[in-house]
């Protein structure tokens, strides 16, 4: 018995990472929670959440959500046909082409944003502001929409599509009633991978957005920018409250997407078999 107790178990190798995760992943999240619910003196307080009764905060939040929504829709409109077109290409060439599309993902996003500024700003003559920010966002996040949709479209059972055609459906009907519904999980993960990062992104606005106080409604700062500014200036409590809101949004969208994706896979599994 003693010998058995002392025996090395490979599961023990996970302990250092567990410790690191607790100290550097869990504790920071708890700190955000603590700072959100305390005031500058460290006493419990809901003062930080007063930020949410501030009209400016709501406006920024709304603006961020609108830009995130538009970015997501534009990425989807561009990525779905691209993914669909990729499926029509011979498999051997398809992987290379996919690489070409997702290569920018590996390049630092700052460089992509800079390139957008150079091209659309300096050469095409667009002013810094909402439109340029939106274009920057789409450039920044397009590959993240393409990848999951591409994966689901290429993994799709060709037999189901052929069956639909054989049973007399027009190509449009096959697309609307078979292909599109079957690709919903891919769309959902694409939407998730674009929407939340857009809400929390701050660099795109910093480089492409309009600064200064006389900005029109859609030209102003985004949610990520206020969080950044609060922490940069040392308002840790208000900043934490806003970061917490962001965290809750991320958590919600992750849960929702998991539910949708899981439901769908079960359903399609049922119909195919």
């Amino acid at each position: 018995m003693k010998k058995l107790k002392l025996r090395f178990h490979r599961g023990y190798l996970a302990f250092p990472y567990m410790a690191v995760s607790i100290v550097f992943v869990i504790v920071p999240l708890i700190l955000i929670l603590i700072y959100a619910f305390t005031d500058a003196s460290g006493a419990f307080s809901l003062e930080s959440f007063n930020k949410f009764s501030d009209k400016g905060t709501w406006i920024t939040m709304a603006r961020s959500l609108i830009i995130a929504f538009l970015t997501t829709v534009l990425c989807l409109i561009l990525a779905y046909p691209t993914a669909l077109a990729l499926t029509k290409i011979k498999a051997s060439r398809r992987t290379v082409l996919l690489m070409v599309f997702i290569l920018p993902m590996w390049i630092n996003s700052l460089l992509r944003i800079y390139a957008v500024k150079l091209f659309f700003g300096d050469i095409a003559g667009m002013e810094r502001g909402f439109m340029l920010t939106l274009i920057g966002m789409v450039y920044d996040f397009f590959p993240f929409m393409l990848l999951p949709i591409y994966t689901i479209l290429t993994d799709m059972d060709k037999g189901v599509l052929e069956a639909s055609a054989d049973l007399g459906a027009s190509p449009l009907e096959t697309f609307l009633k078979v292909r599109l519904p079957l690709s919903v999980p891919g769309i959902v993960s694409g939407v998730l991978m674009v929407f939340m990062p857009t809400v929390s992104s701050f660099a795109v606005y910093d480089i492409l957005g309009k600064d200064g106080g006389n900005a029109a409604f859609m030209d102003g700062k985004l949610f990520g920018n206020i969080v950044y500014t609060y922490f940069e200036k040392g308002y840790y409590n208000s900043g934490s409250a806003l970061a917490l809101a962001l965290l809750v949004l991320i958590l919600l969208s992750t849960v929702i997407s998991n539910l949708i994706t899981r439901g769908k896979t079960v359903k399609t599994g049922g119909t195919v078999s």
Partner: peptide
């Protein structure tokens, strides 16, 4: 989000 990880 990077920003939340960073402020943490």
């Amino acid at each position: 989000a990077d920003i939340v990880t960073a402020v943490g």
